[in-house]
Amino acid sequence: MTSYRIGSSGDDVMRIQKALQDAGFYLSQPDGVFGPNTEAAVRNFQAASELGADGIVGPATWGKLFPSQSPAPAPLSGNLDTRCLALTGSFETGRLSPECFACVAGNFDGQGMSFGALQWNFGQGTLQPLLKQMFTNHLDVATTIFGSSLSQLHQALNGGRDAAMSFAVSIQDSSGKNIKDPWKQMFKSLGLTPEFQAIEVLSAAAYYGRALNLCKNYGFWTRRGRALMFDIGVQNGSIPDSVKSLILNDFRQLSQSLSAEDTELAKMRIVANRRAEAARPAFVEDVRRRKLCIAEGKGVVHGITYDLARQFGLDLGSAD
């Protein structure tokens, strides 16, 4: 579903404000503009409802505000690269778009800190270039978000890997898994900006190029086929030659009387199952569930219900 935050406006925002007003959290006159007063009211409502108080009206908060209603769903906007990244990012982070672009985690995996849809991190040196690009191209936005703390982050990025790792340790709790506020909220705000999301999309270009090559090799032509190959590139790297032979042999068994769309669907199911079977035994079913969700266009992965056409605009239409 659409999420509502600072900068949102329209009839749904007016409905949110009225619901917050009825609940005693919004004291201003509803005007349909999601500003600081609305954000503060949302945060207070979320805290009282035992939700994460991020000031954003996403699915959970909407469900609390309107328990018997649903907002009109809108497919994710943006080009195919963005939508493929948003889908795979939601699998990787357990958060639907746009929250997947702003997911921040601590040193749970020894990489210091991970951030964004594909969990770029300090340990492998993959996060530093994204942040540096943001500061170079959009310093005004970064300054608004980080304020006086920006210089500390600059020093960490310019001091090499060790400095970045030390910085990451300094801003998380004793468990080493969670970034502390205000840094957590600042990074989350960064990930929700269009400027940083565009940087994330560009930083995933290598995966997208790999997906294009895989689609060419296996004859996929739909948006969902492209999404499947993008996800394989991110989660699995590629498709080994031994698995490719099995897949192509399965393709040859398909009926020639199938329509183009049914052929694409049947081929995606074959790729999903064959690639899953090649994964390490402990992950076979997880990979299968994730890949079949894309192939079928619907499914439940890590407790999240997906409808690719409705949520991401990923259907069996042509990718070109």
Rank of each mutant, 00 (worst) to 15 (best):
I270Y: 00
G209D: 10
A205V: 01
D286Y: 11
I304P: 04
N158A: 10
N178V: 15
F283H: 11
P75D: 04
T2W: 02
I247Q: 13
D162S: 14
I232H: 11
R252Y: 01
L192Y: 05
S8G: 10
D162K: 13
L248V: 10
L150F: 01
I145F: 02
L202E: 15
P71H: 05
V201H: 10
I239Q: 10
K132C: 04
S28C: 00
R275M: 13
A206R: 11
A117R: 02
N107K: 01
E99G: 02
I179A: 09
Q311N: 14
V287K: 12
A309V: 07
A60P: 00
Y26L: 04
G78C: 06
P281Y: 04
L316G: 02
V57D: 11
D286F: 13
Q21N: 02
F196H: 03
F122M: 15
T126R: 08
V104P: 15
S77W: 01
L130R: 04
S257G: 05
T38S: 11
A211C: 05
L76H: 05
N137W: 06
N236S: 13
Q152T: 11
P67W: 14
H302D: 15
M165Q: 09
E296F: 01
G297I: 03
L153R: 01
V234N: 14
K188F: 06
D31H: 09
T144H: 09
V169L: 14
L228S: 04
E296K: 05
T38P: 09
R274L: 09
A276V: 12
R224E: 06
L51T: 03
S70C: 04
I294L: 05
I294S: 03
L192V: 02
V201R: 13
G313L: 01
K188S: 11
G10N: 07
N236E: 11
G125S: 01
Q21M: 07
G147P: 01
Q185E: 11
L118Y: 13
G225E: 04
S203H: 11
S3G: 01
S189E: 15
F251Q: 01
G159N: 09
